[in-house]
């Protein structure tokens, strides 16, 4: 049962108001307490500064969150994105640093960066389609279905890296993590491009409408003739692809594949970014612009904590609090209780 949201949250533009206000607050705090926080300078034709850093670090979270937003909107969730990041990262690193095994398997890319990226992304897409098949065709609950890959995915990644942290040097591939395009870090460019692609994919076709319809009322969508299985398969596949791109950026950035820690707990950041942006965790409407703001807010929080010299692990505690806060704000039961109390105090 959906209740009308309290006015505070629904006034227009409904989904962006709260996260934008929160983002502004955090930025204001930074401006007041961290000297030079807003300082951006040009060095060798590249932009540097805390803000650029936030964009750069926030890119992988945003990438994950884009796919996650669509998945959440269908009423599902993908817990495996972190593991999928590890898989694609390990795949790329393996192809660069230890191509012998792949060559034996008939895969000889001659160290070509585009080919390595393409092959790794196919792996990410395949992982997403695997999740999608379980959810759409085997009717497994999304949490459970994606849990499988969350468990086994890191094993697969370790298998690819033979359990070691593979380091590599490959200027072409490293560009993905540390290159610059038009003064901006390349990850930012990729994230912006994927944001546009996601928007085009969901709003330029009927996919967005179908996703929202399936998540909001599955039965009504079925009766209207929406092919829910196909929609879910596509969306999980896309989520896997997004996670794959994020994994490649992460790997290229540190010039190494760490199967154990790549993307660890990133699934929560992705879910949080989407939820902060107003996408319902129980399915229905999704807001890509909200997800963008949500991802930026999360990264700004993290960067703030890091810059303030507070122990970085405090971000974990802060995020725990944000999760609960966002959940409570979305909970109809909490809203009705809080609303009642508010009204009682007002009278």
């Amino acid at each position: 049962m959906k209740r009308p949201a309290p006015r505070l949250i629904t006034s227009s533009p409904p989904h962006l108001l709260m996260p934008l206000a929160a983002l502004a607050l955090v930025l204001l705090y930074d401006a007041l307490t961290i000297p030079g926080f807003f300082h951006v300078e040009m060095r060798d034709g590249h932009l540097f500064g805390s803000l650029v850093d936030i964009l750069n670090r926030g890119a992988p979270v945003l990438l994950l969150a884009l796919g996650m937003t669509l998945v959440l909107s269908t009423g599902g969730v993908d817990l495996s994105v972190g593991a999928v990041m590890a898989i694609t990262g390990a795949m790329a690193a393996g192809l660069i640093a230890r191509p012998e095994g792949f060559v034996l398997a008939g895969l000889d890319l001659h160290g070509s960066a585009p080919a390595i990226v393409a092959v790794s992304l196919v792996a990410g897409l395949a992982a997403g389609l695997f999740n999608g098949a379980l959810v759409a065709f085997a009717d497994v609950q999304p949490i459970v279905a994606t849990l499988i890959l969350m468990v086994a995915g890191r094993g697969v990644a370790q298998l690819l890296t033979a359990g070691q942290i593979i380091t590599f040097e490959h200027p072409g591939f490293q560009f993905l993590g540390s290159g610059f395009v038009a003064g901006l870090p390349f990850p930012v460019t990729v994230a912006v491009a994927m944001f546009l692609v996601t928007a085009a994919l969901s709003r330029g076709t009927a996919l967005g409408l179908f996703v929202e319809a399936v998540g909001d009322n599955p039965t009504a969508s079925r009766f209207a003739g929406v092919n829910a299985r196909m929609v879910k398969l596509l969306v999980y596949g896309f989520c896997g692809l997004c996670a794959g791109i994020a994994g490649l950026i992460g790997t290229a950035d540190i010039k190494a594949a760490d199967a154990n820690n790549a993307g660890l707990y990133m699934e929560l950041d992705a879910i949080l970014a989407a939820a902060i942006g107003g996408t319902s965790l129980s399915g229905g409407r999704f807001y890509l612009s909200g997800t963008l703001v949500g991802a930026l807010l999360l990264q700004t929080l993290t960067t703030t904590i890091l810059t303030k010299g507070v122990p970085p692990v405090l971000t974990l505690v802060v995020k725990a609090a944000v999760v609960v806060a966002v959940c409570l704000l979305q909970s109809p039961k909490f809203r009705s209780v809080a609303g009642r109390r508010f009204r009682r105090e007002a009278t």
Binding site: E212, A213, D216, N217, A220, S221, F223, R285
Partner: peptide
């Protein structure tokens, strides 16, 4: 309610 409308989408959609 349960099988017809998609409640949070617009009349147009």
């Amino acid at each position: 309610k349960a099988e017809g409308i998609v409640p949070n989408l617009s009349v147009r959609e």
